[in-house]
């Protein structure tokens, strides 16, 4: 059964992070919220594995 990968898989984490923040440039808080929601849905569909997604959902909620 596949599990959530939490080791780094990004060849250049800094490239990704910059692109992520750039995507939100000049957006209002509401617009940013919408971008984030769509991003999560897109990535969830790409992952396509309910067990992995449940694990990610639970990690994300932890401590909040």
């Amino acid at each position: 059964m596949p599990t959530l990968a939490t080791e780094n898989r990004l060849p250049s984490p800094d490239d990704f992070y910059e692109a992520l923040i750039d995507t939100h440039r000049d957006l209002t808080a509401e617009q940013s919220g919408m971008v984030n929601a769509k991003l999560i849905l897109l990535l969830a569909n790409h992952i396509g594995d309910m067990d992995v997604l449940r694990e990610a959902l639970s990690h994300a909620r932890k401590g909040v």
């Binding site: 990004l10 984490p13 939100h24 808080a29």
Partner: peptide
């Protein structure tokens, strides 16, 4: 920006437990 701060804090929050997030801590 607020969203940049939010992502930053989320990265820091995850970094204690998840190695991938440590690679993003800058």
């Amino acid at each position: 920006s607020a969203v940049s701060r939010l992502f930053r804090d989320a990265v820091l929050d995850l970094a204690g437990e998840h190695p991938f997030a440590r690679s993003l801590v800058n």
